[in-house]
């Protein structure tokens, strides 16, 4: 416990010094003038900088370890993206094979109907023709259903985009742990997330996210078919 206290004390001291530096510099700016305030702030900053260097090695080691762990999470997000790519590839292949098969069935049914027309005139031909038409009828609907693949692809693309956002943020955090000068360069996670949400997905998914994050917000959506 004593060791922990000794690790935390320099942090507290540095924070207090930083606040004092800012307040004192401000006070001096008002009382004496900017010409004197600036060098005073620089002087205090220098003193704080020297103090940060005095972190116990145990604390510094912990910070670097956390930074290293954070950087390693990228391996997991990469795996997630690869898995998503594989799913997209597999569903795309399957959907295209089904589409080709449907094309072929459609062409064969059309050719059958043509032959029945030319080679089987009369009531029997009509019966066969009716049967052939009923085989071909559902094909258009099946073509329509194949759009599921594109919807799935875009949902996975959204997941991949999110994992990139996580990657970038973890790298930034890792840098921050190991290098305090990077503090101001950390990206805005929420903004990156919102951008991904805005770019990649459907309103229903954004509504799900708003519900999960406790925001009672439903996006304005129009009808499924709209002519302007």
């Amino acid at each position: 416990m004593d060791t922990d206290k000794s690790a935390i004390l320099p942090l507290v001291l540095a924070t207090v010094l930083a606040a004092l530096s800012s307040a004192a510099a401000g006070w001096l700016a008002g009382a004496i003038g900017a010409a004197l305030a600036a060098p005073f702030g620089v002087l205090l900053g220098y003193a704080i900088g020297r103090h940060w260097g005095a972190f116990p090695s145990r604390v510094r080691l912990s910070l670097f370890r956390v930074a290293d762990e954070l950087a390693q999470y990228r391996a997991f997000t990469r795996l997630m993206r690869d898995q998503g790519d594989r799913i997209t590839e597999t569903t795309d292949d399957a959907a295209q094979i089904i589409a080709s098969g449907l094309h072929e069935i459609d062409a064969k049914v059309a050719s059958l109907i043509e032959r029945i027309d030319t080679e089987m005139p009369g009531p029997d031909g009509e019966v066969f023709k009716h049967m052939a038409v009923s085989i071909g009828d559902p094909i258009v609907g099946m073509f329509g259903k194949l759009q599921f693949q594109d919807v799935t692809r875009q949902q996975l693309a959204f997941l991949a985009r999110l994992s990139h956002v996580l990657d970038e943020h973890m790298v930034a955090l890792a840098q921050q742990m190991g290098d305090r000068r990077a503090l101001d360069r950390v990206g805005q996670f929420k903004q990156m997330f919102d951008q991904a949400l805005n770019d990649c997905v459907m309103s229903s998914q954004r509504d799900d996210h708003h519900a999960a994050s406790g925001t009672d917000f439903k996006e304005a959506v129009g009808p499924k078919v709209e002519l302007f």
Binding site: G144, D150, V221, K224, E226
Partner: peptide, 26 residues
């Protein structure tokens, strides 16, 4: 697949004729 109103407005401003949300019934 997008059904957001603001995106529709963008399309309308770009002089699109209409908007259909996937999956579209044949």
């Amino acid at each position: 697949t997008e059904s957001q109103q603001s995106k529709r407005d963008e399309a309308r401003a770009a002089k699109a004729t209409g908007w259909l949300v996937k999956p579209v019934q044949p």
